[in-house]
Design a protein around this nucleic acid. Structure first.
Lengths: 208, 208
DNA sequence: AGACTTCTCTACCATTTGGTCAGTGGGTGA
DNA sequence: TCACCCACTGACCAAATGGTAGAGAAGTCT
């Protein structure tokens, strides 16, 4: 495999571009021809690397899952051991992701359409992370550092809130909130506040 | 127009079915042939009533907006004058909608993809409602009945939370939350709690 | 050099897609 | 009865779609 200083592989480029396009325009709305066009290659080259379009999608989903996991892992590694601090680091990191690669979160939404077969696959890949989050929350709750609640619901709320930010640009606009950096920061502040009060209600808050 | 006891018009049936299918499987994933097949008619009949597929989509969006407006209007009309009571009635009504016609909220999500031309149209139709909501919130805030905050952000959070419920079934499942009635009630309770604390923080709460 | 592998392309193909056209039949008003 | 309109359909069509087959270029190993 001579990939020394050759820049990104064609396969890599296809994957990257497909992720972006699937995540923004959607899977069904993206033809292989269009994809190839953007990349300056022929459709057959795509089909050489990924034998069907659905195959490409699964590869894209796998990659997205990997990226997401890596991002989160990174956030948690760089955060201190304090419970709330870890939650905050996670949210901040994902907001950064939403700013820098919104298509990744868009893909999550695209793929988690009810009944989608990709949803299952994605879920399977995220399972370790989910379990880790659940265990973390439950431990903190048991130790009295977080308020007692159903960890699954807490995570669902957080997910829905965060993905909504990246994903509901048009709704924001309709509500008079332009997708500027400032508004993103504001949203992040709100979500952190929400999580803070959901988790710490009757404890010392670390906010403002 | 003699529509006496003839049951729903063909046009009506097309609209209804298209709304459901677009809202669940998505616009691009739905062919006119498939749509016609479900209805037991020929594709040409659809194109007779709606001259292009995009035309059908706009009609569907218009109808969805109308239904949504009607639902909300109804909730507000049946609610008392007390501020929090009105918010609660609204949320409850939309949750019922999410249960009974999830495809309607699914369509919202489908259509509000960033850059979608339908997003604009939908926004325009929802504008009066949005303004009404904003004015309501601002008035209540000014009167000290609600905590002071940016009304737009409050509405965005509420929207994102509620639509997420109807829409993120697969994510819920991945988190171990099956889409049962009980789980929906639980989610509703949480969202109401969230809104309550966002709006009433330092006031008498009406919750439990 | 020659065989082999890897990658990309040109040339096709069957099917599906959104859409047109020219009807057909049934009802309605003059 | 005749003209007219409405709702609907069968027969097509051009373009686009996902996918196949095979060849050529370039490198690698022997």
């Amino acid at each position: 495999m001579g990939e020394i200083s050759t820049g990104p592989t064609t396969k890599e480029r296809i994957l990257e571009d497909a992720l972006t396009t699937f995540g923004t325009r959607g899977y069904d709305a993206t033809s292989l021809d269009a994809l190839a066009g953007q990349l300056g290659i022929r459709k057959q080259t795509i089909l050489y690397h990924f034998s069907t379009k659905e195959d490409l999608l699964t590869a894209v989903v796998d990659r997205a899952a990997l990226d997401l996991l890596a991002t989160i892992e990174q956030a948690l590694d760089s955060a201190g051991p304090e419970s709330w601090e870890r939650v905050e680091a996670l949210v901040r990191r994902i907001f950064r992701l939403a700013l820098v690669r919104p298509e990744l979160l868009g893909l999550m939404r695209e793929v988690s359409r009810p009944g989608s077969s990709m949803a299952e696959r994605l879920a399977a890949q995220m399972e370790p992370l989910i379990r880790r989050g659940r265990i973390f929350l439950q431990r903190e709750m048991a130790a009295g550092r977080f308020q007692k609640a159903d960890a699954n619901y807490v995570m669902l709320s957080a997910y829905s809130a965060v993905v909504g930010v990246a994903t509901e640009v048009e709704v924001s606009r309709a509500l008079g909130i332009e997708p500027t950096l400032r508004s993103m920061v504001e949203r992040r502040k709100q979500i952190l506040h929400f999580l803070n009060s959901a988790l710490l209600e009757n404890t010392t808050t670390s906010d403002s």
